[in-house]
Structures are given as structure tokens and as C-alpha cells.
């Protein structure tokens, strides 16, 4: 009976082996060989070459800033939404996810229109006699694009974690004499950490690896590590170097996940 039921997973077993495991192995194969199929570390080590290292550095920096801004913007929002009435907050969450239904490339493109020298935002700023904003084709525009695109990935898990907190726990803290600040630091925040962690992972991985946002809002002048890899595959046709750099990228993703998972555990035992 049990073995018979396992048969249902057989198609997925084949599928996952063919389209998940083998392709990953191919990246490692190409990453560690040269054009004559001989073993080499050169592709992976090429990450320390000037251009590549610079791209990786900028990517990490921008991804960190974007993730931090997402946390700072989303936390109060999720907190407010989770505190409002149940029926209304479900609707509000829907309102915050709805923008994701418009094509993500077009939404990013719209920021070009908004941020341009004579764009909408500058027209409004000019009208209000405020200094104009010249951030299109700069790293600032890329960070804005990242924050804009990945913000819902932070809002959702935070909202889920915060709205699951049992109100009686908060009441208990207040009854025991904690003021609202102490209640937040000692009760609400620790309970929201799992949501925070998954939000950070969901924002930082796509931010670290994007090449579309930097392409559209950076004016092609700022290369992120995603741009470098994309060009190795689509323009230079150098799959070996591209794979080598992808392996480095995967190491960073694993590192980020390991760090957040570790912090998650420590956080759990601390409080």
C-alpha cells in the first residue's frame, strides 16, 4: 500500500532529476572545466578580477541597502495592518499585492518615466519649488527599483508573523507591567523574527542576483554580478566563466541563508 502510494511521486522524481539536479550538475561541470573540458579553478577564481569583483561588491552593497530599506518600510506597515480590524486587513493585504499583477518589466519601465530629468516627479518637485531629483541611471535608482519590486515579499511574511501573535500574550505582558515599548521589544518583535527572516531571504536573493533592474534603471552603466553573468551567456557565449561566476553567486546565496538561519536559531533561544 505504502509503496503503491509512493508511485504517485514517480513523475516528480524523474522530473526533478532531469530538470533540477542534472542542470545544477551541468553548472558545476562547466564552472570547473575549460573549453577543452579540462579541470580548472580559473572560472570560479575569475570573480576576483577587477570588473567582476567590482560588480559583486556593488551587488552586495545595493542588495544590503535595498533589504534594509524594505525592512524599515515594511515593519511599521505590517504592524499597522495586523493591528487593524480582521476583515479590513485582508482587503488591505490584497491591495498591497495587486501591483504585482502588472508586468514587472513594465512597472520598472514606468519608474524611468517618473524619474527622468523632465519626468513626473521632477515636474511636481519643480512646481513645489523643491530641488529636483537626478537619480535616474545612478545606483540610487537601482535601489529604488529593488525596493519597489521586492517590497511585497517583505510585507507578506512580516504581516503573517505579526497577525498570528496571540493578543492575549500582549495583554499578559501589559498586565505584568510592561509599557508599550517593553512589550514590543520583549514580546512582539521576538515573535515576528521568523517572518522577518523569511522576508529578508525573499528580498535579498533576487536583489543580489537581478540584472533587469540595473539594466533598466542604471542605464546600462552600472554592472551588477547578474549583468556580468547574463552577458557571459547571452553575448560572450562563454558558458564556462558564466557558470563559474554562478557557482560563486550560489555560494553567497547559501551563505546569506546560513547566516539568517543561524540568527533565527540564536534569536529563538535568546528571548
Amino acid at each position: 500500500m505504502k509503496n503503491k502510494k509512493n508511485l504517485l511521486a514517480f513523475p516528480y522524481l524523474l522530473w526533478s532529476a532531469g530538470f533540477i539536479i542534472i542542470p545544477l550538475c551541468m553548472i558545476f561541470f562547466y564552472g570547473f572545466t575549460d573549453k577543452t573540458n579540462r579541470f580548472t579553478f580559473a572560472n570560479v577564481v575569475s570573480i576576483v578580477e577587477g570588473e567582476n569583483l567590482k560588480a559583486l561588491g556593488i551587488s552586495i552593497l545595493l542588495a544590503l541597502i535595498a533589504t534594509l530599506i524594505c525592512v524599515l518600510l515594511s515593519y511599521p506597515l505590517a504592524y499597522i495592518l495586523s493591528g487593524s480590524g480582521m476583515k479590513q486587513s485582508g482587503f488591505m493585504i490584497f491591495v498591497f499585492i495587486l501591483p504585482m499583477w502588472m508586468n514587472f518589466l513594465l512597472r520598472t519601465l514606468a519608474w524611468q518615466t517618473l524619474l527622468e530629468k523632465n519626468g513626473v516627479i521632477n515636474m511636481i518637485l519643480h512646481f513645489l519649488h523643491l530641488p529636483v531629483l537626478n537619480i535616474i541611471n545612478t545606483p540610487y535608482a537601482i535601489v529604488l527599483g529593488m525596493v519597489y519590486n521586492f517590497l511585497p515579499f517583505m510585507i507578506l511574511p512580516l504581516y503573517n508573523a505579526l497577525s498570528k501573535i496571540d493578543p492575549s500574550v500582549i495583554e499578559a505582558a501589559r498586565d505584568l507591567g510592561a509599557n508599550s515599548f517593553q512589550t514590543f521589544v520583549n514580546v512582539i518583535f521576538p515573535l515576528s523574527i521568523p517572518g522577518l527572516i523569511s522576508g529578508i531571504t525573499m528580498v535579498s536573493v533576487p536583489a543580489l542576483t537581478t540584472f533587469v533592474i540595473s539594466d533598466m534603471l542604471g542605464g546600462g552603466k552600472i554592472l551588477l554580478i547578474g549583468n556580468v553573468i547574463e552577458q557571459e551567456f547571452k553575448q560572450a557565449n562563454n558558458w564556462h566563466v558564466g557558470s563559474g561566476l554562478s557557482i560563486v553567486l550560489m555560494l553567497f546565496i547559501l551563505l546569506a541563508m546560513g547566516l539568517t538561519a543561524k540568527y533565527d536559531k540564536e534569536g529563538g533561544s535568546y528571548f
Binding site: 526533478s16 532531469g18 530538470f19 533540477i20 542534472i22 542542470p23 545544477l24 551541468m26 553548472i27 562547466y30 531571504t201 536573493v205 533576487p206 543580489l208 542576483t209 540584472f211 547578474g226 553573468i229 547574463e230 551567456f233 558558458w239 558564466g242 557558470s243 554562478s246 553567486l249 550560489m250 546565496i253 541563508m257
Partner: peptide
């Protein structure tokens, strides 16, 4: 199941392209 969910889209895309 977790690999494509957690991995970067660009890496998933490249791996399939190589296959």
C-alpha cells in the same frame, strides 16, 4: 522542491539553458 524556490532565477535559467 526548495532548490528552485530559494535559488536565484538567473541560476535556474542558466542551468536549464546548459541542459
Amino acid at each position: 522542491t526548495n532548490i528552485p524556490m530559494l535559488n536565484a532565477d538567473i541560476v535556474t535559467g542558466i542551468s536549464l539553458m546548459l541542459l
